[in-house]
Design a protein around this nucleic acid. Structure first.
Length: 558
RNA sequence: UGGGGAGUGGUGCAAUGGUAGCACAGAGGCCUUUGGAGCCUUUGAUCUUGGUUCGAGUCCAGGCUCCCCAGCCA
Protein backbone atom coordinates (compact mmCIF):
# COMPACT_ATOMS: atom_id res chain seq x y z
CA UNK A 1 0.00 0.00 0.00
CA UNK A 2 1.17 3.47 -0.83
CA UNK A 3 0.31 5.77 2.00
CA UNK A 4 -0.40 9.42 1.44
CA UNK A 5 3.04 10.35 2.70
CA UNK A 6 4.83 8.15 0.21
CA UNK A 7 3.03 9.29 -2.88
CA UNK A 8 5.33 10.62 -5.51
CA UNK A 9 4.96 12.25 -8.88
CA UNK A 10 6.70 15.03 -10.71
CA UNK A 11 4.71 17.73 -8.91
CA UNK A 12 5.45 16.36 -5.46
CA UNK A 13 9.08 16.08 -6.49
CA UNK A 14 9.13 19.74 -7.47
CA UNK A 15 7.58 20.72 -4.18
CA UNK A 16 10.11 18.66 -2.25
CA UNK A 17 12.80 20.49 -4.15
CA UNK A 18 11.26 23.87 -3.33
CA UNK A 19 11.19 22.95 0.32
CA UNK A 20 14.73 21.59 0.23
CA UNK A 21 16.16 24.70 -1.39
CA UNK A 22 14.23 26.98 0.91
CA UNK A 23 12.40 28.66 -1.92
CA UNK A 24 9.27 28.07 0.15
CA UNK A 25 9.13 27.05 3.77
CA UNK A 26 5.56 25.79 3.68
CA UNK A 27 2.99 24.48 1.23
CA UNK A 28 -0.29 26.13 0.44
CA UNK A 29 -2.62 25.19 -2.40
CA UNK A 30 -6.11 26.04 -3.49
CA UNK A 31 -8.96 24.40 -5.34
CA UNK A 32 -10.39 27.09 -7.65
CA UNK A 33 -13.68 26.05 -9.28
CA UNK A 34 -15.78 28.45 -11.28
CA UNK A 35 -19.35 28.39 -9.99
CA UNK A 36 -20.90 27.92 -13.39
CA UNK A 37 -21.77 24.23 -13.31
CA UNK A 38 -21.51 21.00 -11.42
CA UNK A 39 -18.35 19.25 -10.42
CA UNK A 40 -17.58 16.05 -12.28
CA UNK A 41 -15.07 13.25 -12.03
CA UNK A 42 -12.45 15.27 -13.87
CA UNK A 43 -12.48 17.82 -11.06
CA UNK A 44 -11.74 15.10 -8.56
CA UNK A 45 -8.24 14.78 -9.91
CA UNK A 46 -7.68 18.48 -9.32
CA UNK A 47 -9.08 18.23 -5.81
CA UNK A 48 -7.02 15.16 -5.04
CA UNK A 49 -3.92 17.05 -6.12
CA UNK A 50 -4.72 20.31 -4.34
CA UNK A 51 -5.91 18.83 -1.06
CA UNK A 52 -3.66 15.78 -1.23
CA UNK A 53 -0.45 17.68 -1.81
CA UNK A 54 -1.22 20.13 0.97
CA UNK A 55 -1.92 17.34 3.40
CA UNK A 56 1.15 15.36 2.44
CA UNK A 57 3.45 18.28 3.10
CA UNK A 58 1.70 19.45 6.25
CA UNK A 59 0.31 22.47 4.46
CA UNK A 60 -3.13 23.89 3.86
CA UNK A 61 -5.53 23.99 0.96
CA UNK A 62 -8.31 26.50 0.54
CA UNK A 63 -11.42 26.65 -1.57
CA UNK A 64 -11.58 29.66 -3.81
CA UNK A 65 -14.38 30.30 -6.21
CA UNK A 66 -13.12 31.83 -9.39
CA UNK A 67 -16.12 34.08 -9.83
CA UNK A 68 -14.92 36.75 -12.23
CA UNK A 69 -17.61 36.31 -14.87
CA UNK A 70 -21.05 37.29 -13.55
CA UNK A 71 -22.68 36.37 -16.83
CA UNK A 72 -22.13 32.68 -16.18
CA UNK A 73 -21.95 32.22 -12.47
CA UNK A 74 -24.65 31.55 -9.92
CA UNK A 75 -24.97 31.08 -6.20
CA UNK A 76 -26.74 27.76 -6.79
CA UNK A 77 -23.52 26.32 -8.11
CA UNK A 78 -21.53 27.61 -5.16
CA UNK A 79 -23.73 25.63 -2.81
CA UNK A 80 -23.72 22.51 -4.97
CA UNK A 81 -19.95 22.59 -5.36
CA UNK A 82 -19.37 22.92 -1.64
CA UNK A 83 -21.70 20.00 -0.97
CA UNK A 84 -19.89 17.85 -3.50
CA UNK A 85 -16.45 18.65 -2.11
CA UNK A 86 -17.55 17.82 1.41
CA UNK A 87 -19.15 14.63 0.23
CA UNK A 88 -15.90 13.56 -1.32
CA UNK A 89 -14.26 14.11 2.03
CA UNK A 90 -12.08 17.12 1.37
CA UNK A 91 -12.03 19.93 3.91
CA UNK A 92 -11.12 23.56 3.35
CA UNK A 93 -11.92 24.32 7.01
CA UNK A 94 -12.33 28.09 7.39
CA UNK A 95 -10.56 28.93 4.16
CA UNK A 96 -13.46 29.77 1.88
CA UNK A 97 -12.52 32.52 -0.54
CA UNK A 98 -13.90 34.19 -3.62
CA UNK A 99 -11.95 35.92 -6.33
CA UNK A 100 -14.64 38.59 -6.08
CA UNK A 101 -13.38 39.34 -2.57
CA UNK A 102 -10.31 40.80 -4.24
CA UNK A 103 -12.01 43.03 -6.81
CA UNK A 104 -11.03 46.21 -4.97
CA UNK A 105 -7.43 45.10 -4.50
CA UNK A 106 -7.24 43.98 -8.11
CA UNK A 107 -8.47 47.41 -9.14
CA UNK A 108 -5.71 49.01 -7.10
CA UNK A 109 -3.18 46.71 -8.76
CA UNK A 110 -4.53 47.78 -12.14
CA UNK A 111 -4.04 51.41 -11.23
CA UNK A 112 -0.48 50.54 -10.30
CA UNK A 113 0.02 48.89 -13.68
CA UNK A 114 -1.35 51.90 -15.51
CA UNK A 115 0.89 54.26 -13.55
CA UNK A 116 3.86 52.09 -14.43
CA UNK A 117 2.92 52.37 -18.08
CA UNK A 118 2.19 48.64 -18.20
CA UNK A 119 -1.50 48.83 -18.99
CA UNK A 120 -3.70 50.94 -21.19
CA UNK A 121 -7.33 51.53 -22.01
CA UNK A 122 -8.20 50.30 -25.46
CA UNK A 123 -11.18 51.47 -27.53
CA UNK A 124 -10.96 48.66 -30.04
CA UNK A 125 -14.02 46.44 -30.40
CA UNK A 126 -13.83 42.73 -29.67
CA UNK A 127 -13.64 42.02 -33.35
CA UNK A 128 -10.90 44.58 -33.90
CA UNK A 129 -8.89 43.21 -31.03
CA UNK A 130 -9.04 39.83 -32.67
CA UNK A 131 -7.86 41.25 -35.98
CA UNK A 132 -5.05 43.20 -34.38
CA UNK A 133 -3.89 40.16 -32.46
CA UNK A 134 -2.51 38.52 -35.58
CA UNK A 135 -2.50 34.77 -35.95
CA UNK A 136 -0.50 31.87 -34.62
CA UNK A 137 2.08 32.38 -37.33
CA UNK A 138 1.84 36.12 -37.95
CA UNK A 139 2.58 38.86 -35.44
CA UNK A 140 -0.11 41.25 -34.32
CA UNK A 141 -0.04 45.01 -34.55
CA UNK A 142 -0.36 47.73 -31.97
CA UNK A 143 -3.72 49.20 -31.15
CA UNK A 144 -3.98 52.90 -32.11
CA UNK A 145 -4.84 53.53 -28.43
CA UNK A 146 -1.76 51.82 -27.11
CA UNK A 147 0.24 54.98 -26.49
CA UNK A 148 -2.26 56.94 -24.46
CA UNK A 149 -0.77 58.88 -21.60
CA UNK A 150 -0.84 57.55 -18.06
CA UNK A 151 -3.16 60.39 -17.09
CA UNK A 152 -5.61 59.59 -19.85
CA UNK A 153 -5.52 55.88 -19.06
CA UNK A 154 -6.10 56.59 -15.39
CA UNK A 155 -9.01 58.84 -16.19
CA UNK A 156 -10.57 56.43 -18.65
CA UNK A 157 -10.14 53.41 -16.40
CA UNK A 158 -11.77 55.21 -13.49
CA UNK A 159 -14.65 56.16 -15.76
CA UNK A 160 -14.89 52.54 -16.88
CA UNK A 161 -15.39 51.61 -13.26
CA UNK A 162 -17.86 54.44 -12.80
CA UNK A 163 -20.07 52.94 -15.47
CA UNK A 164 -19.69 55.64 -18.08
CA UNK A 165 -19.30 53.16 -20.89
CA UNK A 166 -21.32 50.38 -22.41
CA UNK A 167 -20.39 46.71 -22.54
CA UNK A 168 -17.61 46.16 -25.01
CA UNK A 169 -16.86 49.82 -25.49
CA UNK A 170 -13.50 49.73 -23.77
CA UNK A 171 -11.08 47.31 -22.18
CA UNK A 172 -8.00 47.58 -20.04
CA UNK A 173 -5.10 45.78 -21.63
CA UNK A 174 -1.66 44.80 -20.46
CA UNK A 175 1.08 46.49 -22.48
CA UNK A 176 3.41 43.69 -23.37
CA UNK A 177 4.29 42.95 -26.97
CA UNK A 178 1.95 42.60 -29.94
CA UNK A 179 4.55 40.66 -31.88
CA UNK A 180 5.29 38.21 -29.10
CA UNK A 181 5.56 34.67 -30.48
CA UNK A 182 3.37 33.58 -27.61
CA UNK A 183 -0.10 34.73 -28.49
CA UNK A 184 -1.24 35.07 -24.88
CA UNK A 185 1.39 37.74 -24.39
CA UNK A 186 0.04 40.02 -27.11
CA UNK A 187 -1.46 42.65 -24.84
CA UNK A 188 -4.04 40.46 -23.12
CA UNK A 189 -7.25 42.00 -21.85
CA UNK A 190 -7.24 42.58 -18.09
CA UNK A 191 -10.68 44.11 -17.62
CA UNK A 192 -13.86 44.10 -19.63
CA UNK A 193 -17.04 46.04 -19.07
CA UNK A 194 -20.01 43.92 -18.05
CA UNK A 195 -23.15 45.53 -16.78
CA UNK A 196 -24.21 42.34 -14.99
CA UNK A 197 -25.44 41.45 -11.56
CA UNK A 198 -22.75 39.49 -9.73
CA UNK A 199 -23.85 36.73 -7.37
CA UNK A 200 -21.82 38.24 -4.54
CA UNK A 201 -20.99 41.85 -5.34
CA UNK A 202 -24.37 42.64 -6.86
CA UNK A 203 -24.25 45.81 -8.96
CA UNK A 204 -21.19 47.19 -7.24
CA UNK A 205 -19.00 46.60 -10.28
CA UNK A 206 -19.39 46.98 -14.01
CA UNK A 207 -15.83 46.08 -14.85
CA UNK A 208 -14.66 42.55 -14.21
CA UNK A 209 -11.14 41.14 -14.22
CA UNK A 210 -10.21 38.43 -16.68
CA UNK A 211 -8.95 35.09 -15.43
CA UNK A 212 -5.31 35.88 -16.15
CA UNK A 213 -5.43 39.11 -14.26
CA UNK A 214 -7.34 37.68 -11.32
CA UNK A 215 -5.91 34.27 -10.72
CA UNK A 216 -2.25 34.83 -10.01
CA UNK A 217 -2.90 37.90 -7.91
CA UNK A 218 -5.54 36.00 -5.91
CA UNK A 219 -3.04 33.22 -5.32
CA UNK A 220 -0.48 35.77 -4.22
CA UNK A 221 -2.80 37.59 -1.85
CA UNK A 222 -3.75 34.33 -0.18
CA UNK A 223 -0.16 33.20 0.14
CA UNK A 224 -0.55 30.19 -2.11
CA UNK A 225 2.86 28.64 -2.70
CA UNK A 226 1.97 26.11 -5.36
CA UNK A 227 -0.82 26.86 -7.77
CA UNK A 228 -1.70 23.55 -9.36
CA UNK A 229 -3.81 23.59 -12.47
CA UNK A 230 -4.62 21.61 -15.54
CA UNK A 231 -2.45 21.58 -18.58
CA UNK A 232 -4.34 24.04 -20.74
CA UNK A 233 -3.06 26.74 -18.41
CA UNK A 234 0.50 25.96 -19.33
CA UNK A 235 0.08 28.53 -22.07
CA UNK A 236 -0.91 31.05 -19.45
CA UNK A 237 2.00 30.64 -17.07
CA UNK A 238 4.19 33.25 -18.81
CA UNK A 239 1.42 35.75 -18.24
CA UNK A 240 0.83 34.55 -14.68
CA UNK A 241 4.50 35.17 -13.98
CA UNK A 242 4.62 38.46 -15.84
CA UNK A 243 1.81 40.10 -13.87
CA UNK A 244 3.30 39.01 -10.55
CA UNK A 245 6.71 40.25 -11.57
CA UNK A 246 5.40 43.64 -12.70
CA UNK A 247 3.55 44.06 -9.44
CA UNK A 248 6.49 42.83 -7.41
CA UNK A 249 4.30 40.87 -5.04
CA UNK A 250 4.62 37.37 -3.54
CA UNK A 251 5.14 34.97 -6.39
CA UNK A 252 3.55 31.51 -6.18
CA UNK A 253 4.67 28.74 -8.49
CA UNK A 254 2.11 27.54 -11.00
CA UNK A 255 2.46 23.87 -11.91
CA UNK A 256 0.32 22.18 -14.52
CA UNK A 257 -0.70 18.56 -14.89
CA UNK A 258 -2.73 16.66 -17.46
CA UNK A 259 -6.43 16.07 -17.31
CA UNK A 260 -7.82 12.73 -18.31
CA UNK A 261 -10.62 11.33 -20.41
CA UNK A 262 -12.67 8.25 -19.82
CA UNK A 263 -14.07 5.83 -22.35
CA UNK A 264 -17.82 5.59 -22.81
CA UNK A 265 -18.44 9.09 -21.53
CA UNK A 266 -17.82 12.75 -22.21
CA UNK A 267 -15.98 14.95 -19.76
CA UNK A 268 -16.49 18.52 -20.84
CA UNK A 269 -18.88 20.74 -18.99
CA UNK A 270 -20.36 21.88 -22.26
CA UNK A 271 -21.35 18.37 -23.37
CA UNK A 272 -22.68 17.53 -19.94
CA UNK A 273 -24.87 20.60 -20.13
CA UNK A 274 -26.18 19.47 -23.46
CA UNK A 275 -26.98 15.98 -22.21
CA UNK A 276 -29.01 17.50 -19.41
CA UNK A 277 -30.67 20.23 -21.45
CA UNK A 278 -31.65 17.93 -24.29
CA UNK A 279 -33.23 15.53 -21.84
CA UNK A 280 -31.06 12.51 -22.41
CA UNK A 281 -30.93 12.20 -18.64
CA UNK A 282 -33.20 13.45 -15.87
CA UNK A 283 -30.86 16.08 -14.49
CA UNK A 284 -27.42 16.90 -13.17
CA UNK A 285 -27.77 14.22 -10.55
CA UNK A 286 -28.95 11.50 -12.88
CA UNK A 287 -27.06 8.32 -11.90
CA UNK A 288 -25.73 8.01 -15.42
CA UNK A 289 -23.92 11.31 -15.18
CA UNK A 290 -20.26 11.48 -14.19
CA UNK A 291 -21.04 14.51 -12.05
CA UNK A 292 -20.38 14.03 -8.37
CA UNK A 293 -24.08 14.55 -7.77
CA UNK A 294 -24.87 11.83 -10.28
CA UNK A 295 -22.37 9.39 -8.92
CA UNK A 296 -23.62 10.05 -5.40
CA UNK A 297 -27.17 9.28 -6.43
CA UNK A 298 -25.99 6.18 -8.23
CA UNK A 299 -24.61 4.93 -4.95
CA UNK A 300 -20.93 5.17 -5.77
CA UNK A 301 -19.03 5.72 -2.51
CA UNK A 302 -16.75 8.77 -2.45
CA UNK A 303 -13.94 6.53 -1.26
CA UNK A 304 -14.21 4.52 -4.48
CA UNK A 305 -13.90 7.67 -6.54
CA UNK A 306 -10.84 8.79 -4.61
CA UNK A 307 -9.23 5.37 -4.87
CA UNK A 308 -9.81 5.43 -8.60
CA UNK A 309 -8.34 8.89 -8.98
CA UNK A 310 -5.22 7.86 -7.12
CA UNK A 311 -4.65 5.32 -9.85
CA UNK A 312 -5.04 7.54 -12.89
CA UNK A 313 -1.56 8.90 -12.47
CA UNK A 314 -0.11 12.37 -12.66
CA UNK A 315 1.75 13.50 -15.75
CA UNK A 316 1.60 15.87 -18.65
CA UNK A 317 0.28 13.57 -21.33
CA UNK A 318 -3.37 13.28 -22.16
CA UNK A 319 -4.70 9.95 -21.00
CA UNK A 320 -7.85 8.02 -21.63
CA UNK A 321 -8.80 5.83 -18.75
CA UNK A 322 -10.82 2.77 -19.54
CA UNK A 323 -14.22 2.72 -17.96
CA UNK A 324 -13.50 -0.80 -16.71
CA UNK A 325 -10.84 0.66 -14.47
CA UNK A 326 -13.39 2.91 -12.84
CA UNK A 327 -15.80 -0.02 -12.53
CA UNK A 328 -13.10 -2.02 -10.81
CA UNK A 329 -12.69 0.53 -8.04
CA UNK A 330 -16.43 0.86 -7.57
CA UNK A 331 -16.85 -2.90 -7.22
CA UNK A 332 -13.78 -3.22 -5.07
CA UNK A 333 -15.11 -0.70 -2.58
CA UNK A 334 -18.70 -1.88 -2.61
CA UNK A 335 -17.74 -5.52 -2.24
CA UNK A 336 -16.39 -4.69 1.19
CA UNK A 337 -18.76 -1.93 2.13
CA UNK A 338 -22.16 -3.21 1.04
CA UNK A 339 -24.03 -5.76 3.10
CA UNK A 340 -25.78 -8.52 1.25
CA UNK A 341 -29.51 -8.87 0.77
CA UNK A 342 -31.84 -10.79 -1.50
CA UNK A 343 -33.57 -9.03 -4.31
CA UNK A 344 -35.27 -10.64 -7.28
CA UNK A 345 -35.47 -8.39 -10.29
CA UNK A 346 -37.68 -10.48 -12.59
CA UNK A 347 -39.66 -12.78 -10.35
CA UNK A 348 -40.56 -16.35 -11.25
CA UNK A 349 -42.81 -18.11 -8.76
CA UNK A 350 -41.58 -21.35 -7.27
CA UNK A 351 -44.04 -23.60 -5.40
CA UNK A 352 -42.55 -26.13 -3.03
CA UNK A 353 -45.18 -28.81 -3.35
CA UNK A 354 -44.10 -30.83 -0.34
CA UNK A 355 -43.67 -27.85 1.96
CA UNK A 356 -46.62 -27.27 4.29
CA UNK A 357 -48.92 -24.41 3.43
CA UNK A 358 -48.81 -21.64 5.97
CA UNK A 359 -45.48 -22.77 7.35
CA UNK A 360 -42.81 -20.18 7.79
CA UNK A 361 -39.23 -20.69 8.85
CA UNK A 362 -36.83 -17.92 9.63
CA UNK A 363 -33.54 -18.70 7.89
CA UNK A 364 -30.37 -17.08 9.13
CA UNK A 365 -28.33 -15.08 6.62
CA UNK A 366 -24.96 -13.48 7.26
CA UNK A 367 -25.03 -9.78 6.44
CA UNK A 368 -21.65 -10.16 4.85
CA UNK A 369 -20.00 -13.54 4.35
CA UNK A 370 -16.51 -12.07 4.65
CA UNK A 371 -17.26 -10.09 7.79
CA UNK A 372 -19.02 -12.28 10.37
CA UNK A 373 -18.84 -9.40 12.83
CA UNK A 374 -21.52 -7.63 10.85
CA UNK A 375 -24.00 -10.15 12.21
CA UNK A 376 -26.88 -12.02 10.73
CA UNK A 377 -30.54 -11.49 9.98
CA UNK A 378 -33.61 -13.70 9.65
CA UNK A 379 -35.26 -14.18 6.30
CA UNK A 380 -38.62 -15.93 5.99
CA UNK A 381 -38.81 -19.14 3.98
CA UNK A 382 -42.26 -20.18 2.80
CA UNK A 383 -44.00 -22.58 0.44
CA UNK A 384 -44.15 -20.05 -2.35
CA UNK A 385 -41.05 -18.18 -3.30
CA UNK A 386 -39.69 -16.04 -6.09
CA UNK A 387 -36.49 -16.74 -7.92
CA UNK A 388 -34.96 -14.92 -10.85
CA UNK A 389 -36.43 -15.80 -14.24
CA UNK A 390 -32.88 -16.09 -15.53
CA UNK A 391 -32.20 -18.81 -13.00
CA UNK A 392 -34.56 -21.28 -14.63
CA UNK A 393 -34.32 -22.85 -18.08
CA UNK A 394 -36.72 -25.43 -19.32
CA UNK A 395 -34.08 -26.56 -21.78
CA UNK A 396 -30.76 -25.73 -20.13
CA UNK A 397 -27.80 -25.04 -22.38
CA UNK A 398 -24.38 -26.50 -21.80
CA UNK A 399 -22.69 -25.29 -18.61
CA UNK A 400 -25.93 -23.83 -17.26
CA UNK A 401 -26.01 -25.15 -13.78
CA UNK A 402 -29.02 -23.40 -12.37
CA UNK A 403 -32.59 -24.72 -12.08
CA UNK A 404 -34.13 -26.88 -14.78
CA UNK A 405 -36.59 -29.76 -14.87
CA UNK A 406 -35.23 -32.64 -12.80
CA UNK A 407 -32.33 -30.52 -11.49
CA UNK A 408 -31.48 -29.93 -7.89
CA UNK A 409 -30.18 -26.55 -6.77
CA UNK A 410 -29.53 -24.82 -3.49
CA UNK A 411 -31.69 -21.95 -2.38
CA UNK A 412 -29.05 -20.02 -0.55
CA UNK A 413 -29.24 -20.49 3.24
CA UNK A 414 -32.60 -22.21 2.61
CA UNK A 415 -32.97 -25.72 1.31
CA UNK A 416 -31.97 -27.91 -1.59
CA UNK A 417 -34.88 -28.18 -4.00
CA UNK A 418 -35.52 -30.25 -7.10
CA UNK A 419 -37.64 -29.11 -9.99
CA UNK A 420 -40.51 -31.48 -10.67
CA UNK A 421 -42.88 -29.58 -12.90
CA UNK A 422 -43.27 -26.50 -15.06
CA UNK A 423 -46.59 -24.70 -15.24
CA UNK A 424 -47.44 -22.66 -18.33
CA UNK A 425 -50.30 -20.45 -19.35
CA UNK A 426 -52.36 -20.76 -22.51
CA UNK A 427 -49.70 -18.82 -24.43
CA UNK A 428 -47.03 -21.27 -23.41
CA UNK A 429 -45.31 -18.83 -21.06
CA UNK A 430 -43.88 -20.29 -17.91
CA UNK A 431 -45.88 -18.95 -14.98
CA UNK A 432 -44.46 -21.02 -12.19
CA UNK A 433 -42.28 -23.98 -11.45
CA UNK A 434 -42.91 -26.70 -8.94
CA UNK A 435 -40.18 -28.15 -6.81
CA UNK A 436 -39.83 -30.51 -3.94
CA UNK A 437 -37.75 -29.56 -0.98
CA UNK A 438 -35.40 -31.96 0.79
CA UNK A 439 -36.26 -31.42 4.47
CA UNK A 440 -32.88 -32.78 5.52
CA UNK A 441 -31.05 -29.88 3.91
CA UNK A 442 -32.12 -26.95 6.04
CA UNK A 443 -29.60 -24.14 5.69
CA UNK A 444 -28.46 -25.46 2.33
CA UNK A 445 -26.24 -28.38 3.27
CA UNK A 446 -26.91 -31.97 2.39
CA UNK A 447 -26.17 -34.41 5.24
CA UNK A 448 -25.07 -37.04 2.76
CA UNK A 449 -22.46 -34.65 1.47
CA UNK A 450 -23.76 -34.53 -2.07
CA UNK A 451 -22.54 -31.55 -4.03
CA UNK A 452 -24.93 -29.10 -5.61
CA UNK A 453 -23.42 -26.79 -8.13
CA UNK A 454 -26.13 -24.16 -8.50
CA UNK A 455 -26.97 -21.73 -5.73
CA UNK A 456 -29.83 -19.31 -6.20
CA UNK A 457 -31.09 -16.28 -4.32
CA UNK A 458 -34.78 -16.11 -3.47
CA UNK A 459 -37.44 -14.24 -1.54
CA UNK A 460 -40.67 -15.36 0.10
CA UNK A 461 -43.58 -14.70 -2.25
CA UNK A 462 -45.88 -13.77 0.61
CA UNK A 463 -43.48 -11.61 2.53
CA UNK A 464 -41.33 -9.98 -0.10
CA UNK A 465 -41.58 -6.23 -0.54
CA UNK A 466 -42.35 -4.67 -3.88
CA UNK A 467 -39.68 -2.39 -5.21
CA UNK A 468 -38.91 -0.35 -8.26
CA UNK A 469 -35.46 -1.01 -9.58
CA UNK A 470 -33.72 1.28 -12.02
CA UNK A 471 -31.08 -0.52 -13.99
CA UNK A 472 -28.55 1.99 -15.20
CA UNK A 473 -25.94 1.23 -17.76
CA UNK A 474 -23.20 3.33 -19.30
CA UNK A 475 -24.52 6.40 -21.10
CA UNK A 476 -22.69 5.82 -24.36
CA UNK A 477 -22.34 2.80 -26.58
CA UNK A 478 -19.15 4.07 -28.16
CA UNK A 479 -15.85 4.18 -26.26
CA UNK A 480 -14.96 7.51 -27.88
CA UNK A 481 -18.20 9.37 -28.51
CA UNK A 482 -16.36 12.59 -29.29
CA UNK A 483 -14.22 11.00 -31.95
CA UNK A 484 -16.82 8.79 -33.57
CA UNK A 485 -18.43 9.82 -36.81
CA UNK A 486 -21.38 12.17 -36.50
CA UNK A 487 -22.50 13.86 -33.31
CA UNK A 488 -21.63 12.51 -29.90
CA UNK A 489 -25.28 12.29 -28.95
CA UNK A 490 -25.72 9.76 -31.76
CA UNK A 491 -23.94 7.33 -29.50
CA UNK A 492 -26.06 7.69 -26.42
CA UNK A 493 -27.04 4.26 -25.18
CA UNK A 494 -30.77 3.83 -25.78
CA UNK A 495 -30.79 1.17 -23.06
CA UNK A 496 -28.91 3.18 -20.46
CA UNK A 497 -31.96 2.97 -18.19
CA UNK A 498 -34.35 0.11 -17.73
CA UNK A 499 -37.00 0.49 -15.08
CA UNK A 500 -38.32 -2.61 -13.37
CA UNK A 501 -41.54 -1.79 -11.59
CA UNK A 502 -42.23 -5.05 -9.83
CA UNK A 503 -39.04 -6.36 -8.33
CA UNK A 504 -39.27 -8.29 -5.08
CA UNK A 505 -36.92 -7.71 -2.19
CA UNK A 506 -36.54 -9.34 1.21
CA UNK A 507 -38.56 -7.87 4.11
CA UNK A 508 -35.55 -6.58 6.01
CA UNK A 509 -35.22 -3.87 3.39
CA UNK A 510 -38.29 -2.24 4.89
CA UNK A 511 -35.86 -0.43 7.18
CA UNK A 512 -33.65 0.82 4.38
CA UNK A 513 -33.03 4.54 4.16
CA UNK A 514 -32.28 6.78 1.24
CA UNK A 515 -28.66 6.41 0.27
CA UNK A 516 -28.20 2.97 1.84
CA UNK A 517 -26.15 0.64 -0.31
CA UNK A 518 -26.59 -3.10 -0.66
CA UNK A 519 -25.43 -5.96 -2.74
CA UNK A 520 -28.37 -7.89 -4.11
CA UNK A 521 -26.69 -11.27 -4.04
CA UNK A 522 -25.65 -12.56 -7.41
CA UNK A 523 -27.09 -9.46 -9.10
CA UNK A 524 -25.27 -6.24 -8.31
CA UNK A 525 -24.91 -3.24 -6.06
CA UNK A 526 -27.91 -1.07 -5.38
CA UNK A 527 -28.61 2.16 -3.59
CA UNK A 528 -31.90 3.49 -2.20
CA UNK A 529 -33.01 6.42 -4.36
CA UNK A 530 -34.54 9.61 -2.93
CA UNK A 531 -37.67 8.88 -4.98
CA UNK A 532 -38.49 6.10 -2.52
CA UNK A 533 -41.78 6.43 -0.64
CA UNK A 534 -43.39 4.76 2.35
CA UNK A 535 -45.25 2.51 -0.05
CA UNK A 536 -42.50 1.67 -2.46
CA UNK A 537 -38.76 1.48 -2.36
CA UNK A 538 -36.81 2.66 -5.36
CA UNK A 539 -33.35 1.23 -5.96
CA UNK A 540 -30.70 2.41 -8.36
CA UNK A 541 -28.30 -0.13 -9.68
CA UNK A 542 -24.85 1.29 -8.98
CA UNK A 543 -23.09 -1.43 -10.91
CA UNK A 544 -23.73 -5.03 -11.78
CA UNK A 545 -21.68 -7.87 -10.39
CA UNK A 546 -19.21 -9.42 -12.76
CA UNK A 547 -21.21 -12.00 -14.66
CA UNK A 548 -19.10 -14.86 -15.90
CA UNK A 549 -22.15 -16.83 -16.99
CA UNK A 550 -23.04 -14.03 -19.39
CA UNK A 551 -19.57 -14.37 -20.84
CA UNK A 552 -19.88 -18.13 -21.28
CA UNK A 553 -23.28 -17.71 -22.86
CA UNK A 554 -21.88 -15.15 -25.27
CA UNK A 555 -19.01 -17.43 -26.17
CA UNK A 556 -21.50 -20.18 -26.86
CA UNK A 557 -23.22 -17.87 -29.29
CA UNK A 558 -26.30 -17.68 -27.13
C1' U B 1 5.91 26.95 -42.44
C1' G B 2 4.56 30.68 -34.39
C1' G B 3 4.74 29.17 -29.19
C1' G B 4 4.08 25.31 -25.60
C1' G B 5 3.52 20.05 -24.18
C1' A B 6 3.51 14.57 -24.89
C1' G B 7 5.09 9.65 -27.19
C1' U B 8 6.71 2.47 -22.76
C1' G B 9 1.86 -3.99 -23.69
C1' G B 10 -5.22 -3.03 -25.39
C1' U B 11 -5.50 1.15 -21.39
C1' G B 12 -3.11 3.89 -17.43
C1' C B 13 1.27 4.41 -14.49
C1' A B 14 6.64 2.94 -13.16
C1' A B 15 11.91 1.87 -14.16
C1' U B 16 20.19 6.30 -9.86
C1' G B 17 22.86 4.80 -17.82
C1' G B 18 22.73 -1.85 -15.70
C1' U B 19 17.30 -8.28 -15.63
C1' A B 20 11.57 -3.19 -18.79
C1' G B 21 7.79 -3.75 -13.54
C1' C B 22 2.69 -2.70 -11.40
C1' A B 23 -2.64 -1.99 -12.01
C1' C B 24 -7.00 -2.54 -15.08
C1' A B 25 -8.62 -5.35 -19.27
C1' G B 26 -7.84 -10.31 -21.90
C1' A B 27 -6.74 -15.83 -21.67
C1' G B 28 -6.29 -20.34 -18.68
C1' G B 29 -6.76 -22.71 -13.95
C1' C B 30 -7.87 -23.39 -8.46
C1' C B 31 -11.51 -22.56 -4.85
C1' U B 32 -16.49 -21.40 -3.55
C1' U B 33 -23.57 -21.99 0.07
C1' U B 34 -23.01 -15.37 -4.67
C1' G B 35 -21.05 -18.26 -12.06
C1' G B 36 -19.64 -12.74 -6.58
C1' A B 37 -15.12 -12.35 -3.82
C1' G B 38 -10.34 -14.50 -3.37
C1' C B 39 -5.93 -17.20 -5.14
C1' C B 40 -2.48 -19.03 -9.09
C1' U B 41 -0.63 -18.97 -14.03
C1' U B 42 -0.34 -16.48 -18.58
C1' U B 43 -0.43 -13.35 -23.52
C1' G B 44 1.42 -8.60 -24.53
C1' A B 45 5.33 -2.65 -24.86
C1' U B 46 10.05 1.38 -24.98
C1' C B 47 7.28 6.26 -32.09
C1' U B 48 11.47 6.28 -35.77
C1' U B 49 16.63 6.82 -37.74
C1' G B 50 21.37 7.61 -36.44
C1' G B 51 25.12 8.72 -32.56
C1' U B 52 27.75 8.42 -27.58
C1' U B 53 28.66 4.12 -24.31
C1' C B 54 31.08 -2.23 -22.21
C1' G B 55 25.78 -1.24 -21.76
C1' A B 56 20.38 3.53 -23.82
C1' G B 57 13.32 3.57 -22.33
C1' U B 58 16.83 6.95 -19.97
C1' C B 59 22.09 10.94 -22.82
C1' C B 60 22.89 13.63 -27.96
C1' A B 61 21.19 14.86 -33.15
C1' G B 62 17.53 14.49 -36.98
C1' G B 63 12.64 12.82 -38.34
C1' C B 64 7.43 11.27 -37.43
C1' U B 65 2.79 11.38 -34.78
C1' C B 66 -0.60 13.40 -31.23
C1' C B 67 -2.46 17.35 -27.81
C1' C B 68 -3.03 22.73 -26.23
C1' C B 69 -3.10 28.21 -27.62
C1' A B 70 -5.60 33.24 -32.12
C1' G B 71 -12.72 34.67 -25.82
C1' C B 72 -13.94 41.22 -23.82
C1' C B 73 -14.56 32.30 -20.98
C1' A B 74 -12.20 29.92 -16.92
Amino acid sequence: MTTENERSDFIRDMIKEDLATGRFDRVQTRFPPEPNGYLHIGHVKAMAMDFGVAEQFGGICSLRFDDTNPAKEEEEYVEAIMEDIRWLGFDWEDRLYFASDYFEQLYEFALQMIKAGKAYVDDLSAEEIREYRGTLTEPGKDSPWRERSVEENLDLFKRMRAGEFQNGEKTLRAKIDMSHPHINMRDPVMYRILHEEHHRTGDQWVIYPMYDWAHGQSDSLEGVTHSLCSIEYKNHRPLYDWFLDQLGIFHPQQIEFARFNMTYTVMSKRRLVQIVKDGYVRGWDDPRMITLAGMRRAGIPPEAIRAFIEHVGVGLSLSTIQHSKFDHFVRDDLNQRANRVNGVLRPLKVVLTNYPEGQEEMMEFPNHPDYPERGTRKVPFTRELYIEQDDFREDPPNKFWRLAPGREVRLRYGYLVTCTNVVKDEKGEIVEVHCTVDPETRGGNAPDGRRVKGTLHWVSAEQALDAEVRLYDRLFIHPFPMEAEGHFTDYINPKSLEVIENAKVEPSLGDAKVGDRFQFERVGYFCVDPDSTEEKLVFNRTIALRDSWAKIEKQQGG
